[in-house]
């Protein structure tokens, strides 16, 4: 069973729109299709501006898609409201502090999903909050405090607790640890792993940190310029990268014991979203580019077991 299926999902933003004229279309997400299996952690990596957050916001219904189809647990979600989405799929935000309303107590924050999504009564809510707090290792005395009294790591636990309260089976984790210190980051990642086992959750884990993604994911999807350029098993995708961009990412990550040398690439500019290239969007930076790359945008093709890449000249070996 697939927890989530996405087909040809596209998002076009209109920029420079005024009252009188239609703006230009910027394609932030371009015909993405993928699926997330039940109980799986799918890692999503890519550089800033590649469409990670736009994709995530469409999946939870915070942003309407321009085209395409989202199927959650087998059901097509075309006209679903955020409220319906909220019971099936939840979001954990990058900035833990700003995801909590500064003027509400933690109890009020925790009660919202229980009340609004599940219509629970007072006694039932209190019981549920105690259970959830116990499972994310938070003390109940925190419930009467305000968000600014917490450290980033604690605030992120509260954000996770809120997502659990909605009782959704799928969590989108949008850079959940990038605002945290490494020692706290590991605490939160381990907590997420425990919760997943305990509640049978499915994760979409978005991050720009390749090592973190590799450490927590079953499969990894690499995005570039709004499309999926490679997807494959976490233990193979960086080691045996097929797409030149994945390889560039993997070689750029600072690793203890590897000499410092910027990996080869032709330029470092992303394509202009207002004027997208007709061929492979990576062609301007790619050292493997050939003539065909300038004209034909490559499609995802299987290049190993469960390993797909969109490239005319994939790296072999």
């Amino acid at each position: 069973m697939n927890a989530l299926e996405v087909k040809d999902l596209t998002k076009t933003f209109e920029v420079g729109k005024t009252l009188f004229s239609r703006g230009l279309g910027v394609k932030a997400v371009r015909r993405m299709s993928f699926e997330v299996r039940d109980g799986e952690t799918l890692g999503i990596v890519g550089e800033s501006g590649c469409g990670k957050s736009t994709l995530a916001r469409m999946l939870v219904g915070l942003l309407p898609s321009t085209e395409g189809e989202i199927k959650i647990e087998g059901k097509v979600q075309d006209k679903a409201s955020p409220r319906e989405f909220g019971q099936m799929i939840q979001y954990v935000f990058q900035d833990p502090i700003s995801s909590l309303n500064p003027r509400k107590t933690i109890r009020q924050i925790m009660e919202t999903p229980l009340k609004r999504l599940h219509g629970m009564g007072k006694a039932e809510r209190d019981k549920r909050i105690s259970e959830i707090f116990a499972s994310v290792n938070l003390r109940e005395e925190f419930l009467s405090r305000y968000p600014h009294e917490f450290s980033g790591g604690q605030a992120q636990r509260i954000g996770i607790a809120r997502a659990l309260a909605a009782a959704a089976r799928i969590l989108i984790l949008d850079e959940p640890v990038s605002a945290l210190d490494v020692s706290v980051q590991a605490q939160v990642l381990n907590l997420l792993a425990d919760l997943k086992l305990k509640f049978g959750l499915t994760y979409l884990f978005i991050s720009h940190d390749l090592a973190v993604v590799e450490a927590v994911s079953d499969r990894v999807m690499v995005l570039y310029f709004g499309t999926i350029v490679e997807v494959g098993p976490a233990d193979a995708i960086f080691k045996q990268a097929k797409h030149p961009y994945t390889k560039l990412l993997a070689n750029s990550a600072p690793v203890v014991g590897r000499p410092l040398e910027a990996p080869k690439q032709k330029g470092d500019e992303l394509p202009d979203p207002l004027n997208p290239p007709s061929g492979c969007p990576f062609a301007k930076r790619c050292i493997y580019a050939t003539e065909i790359c300038e004209t034909i945008d490559p499609a995802l093709m299987e290049m190993g077991e469960g390993h797909f890449a969109a490239c005319h000249n994939p790296i072999r070996g």
Binding site: F93, N101, G159, A166
Partner: peptide, 10 residues
């Protein structure tokens, strides 16, 4: 982000 969170919480 807390406004987004409120939306998702119904």
């Amino acid at each position: 982000e807390f406004v987004d969170a409120a939306r998702l919480n119904g």
